[in-house]
């Protein structure tokens, strides 16, 4: 019976990884850019959620003297966070990545810029808000469902897992069924054919950043609700891991992000179930490394053939 408990935990953790991995994969699929700042956008999402929530609850933030019911606050916090986080992502794209693209700069310079942008977000946060951790307020009345046999699940856990799956389905729909989604897929093949579809390149790229960042924002809220202690470096490790998960799934492929994310969740929970928890990262990274050794392009990735 214990195993079901582990599976539920794995699904929950996998959901966070998957939600963040989706952002990496979307941007990569369109721009062939590893957006190294994405883990920190997740962190920013969690902080935005915090400020929105405490403001609405009237226990901090802007001190507007509001005193909202937690459920109502949650209903507003979720979309507000997603929108604000998306703005952060788009701001990075507009101020840093786009100018480089316009200059036709080497892809690598954009990657370095992304890496540095992430550092700025992390340390900027530390500098502005100080090292003291923030405690995320309770927005959701905790409900525990007993599934029998010692297995129980909280409503939050269910929400997290359902959210990840819903987001996956939504993105899969957008990418395969809508015009802008197909244009997103098309860009990575041929930058010049896309304007022919009547959608400006920059619109697609901004749209991609909106999607990716708002998902990171959503992951940020859910994570903050599940583990309510926020600190500036919270996005770093989980971000790197989610990124590796995206690559193991096959970066650029939405299914890959989901599979990679859940796989990582299962590996981690599996390791912790058997070994001391300090071995978690060691095993997780080793398994991912081995997968990449065996399948260099990841699970769903296809090797690019070079013709000469």
């Amino acid at each position: 019976m214990e195993i079901f408990q582990h599976i539920l935990n794995a699904l929950q953790f996998g959901s966070f990884y998957a939600l963040i991995a989706l952002g990496y994969t979307l941007v990569y699929g369109v721009l062939r850019l590893i957006n190294f700042a994405h883990g920190d956008i997740f962190m920013v999402g969690a902080y935005i959620a915090y400020f929105v929530a405490v403001t609405l609850l009237g226990i901090g933030g802007l001190h507007l003297g509001m005193d909202m019911h937690p459920a109502l606050a949650l209903a507003i916090t979720v979309p507000a966070t997603m929108i604000l986080t998306a703005l952060v992502g788009v701001a990075l794209e507009r101020t840093m990545y786009r100018p480089l693209r316009r200059k036709g700069a080497n892809r690598l310079y954009v990657v370095i810029t992304a890496l540095m942008a992430g550092l700025m977000l992390e340390n900027g946060n530390l500098a502005l808000l100080g090292a003291s951790r923030k405690r995320f307020p309770d927005l959701l009345e905790k409900v525990v469902w007993d599934l029998g046999g010692g297995v129980s699940v909280t409503n939050l856990k269910v929400i997290v897992i359902v959210a990840a799956i819903a987001v996956f389905l939504l993105l899969q729909f957008i990418v395969t069924r809508t015009k802008i989604g197909m244009a997103m897929r098309g860009i990575s093949y041929d930058k010049f054919a896309i304007p022919l579809m009547g959608i400006p390149l920059d619109t697609i790229i901004v749209f991609t950043f909106i999607l990716g960042s708002s998902m990171a924002g959503l992951a940020g809220i859910l994570f903050a609700m599940s583990y309510p202690i926020l600190e500036p470096y919270m996005g770093a490790l989980i971000g790197w891991k989610a990124f590796i998960a995206a690559v193991v799934g096959g970066i650029g492929d939405i299914r890959g992000a989901i599979v990679g994310g859940f796989l990582l969740g299962f590996i981690e929970i599996g390791v912790v179930a058997v070994f001391p928890s300090t071995l978690r990262d060691l095993f997780a990274f080793s398994v991912l490394l081995i997968i990449l050794w065996l399948r260099p392009t990841g699970i769903f990735g296809v090797a690019q053939t070079t013709k000469i």
């Binding site: 480089l100 810029t113 550092l119 700025m120 340390n123």
Partner: peptide
Amino acid sequence: KWVVIPLLLILLMQ
């Protein structure tokens, strides 16, 4: 410091 240094590098890249 670690806000300024990345910023410098971002400017360098630009």
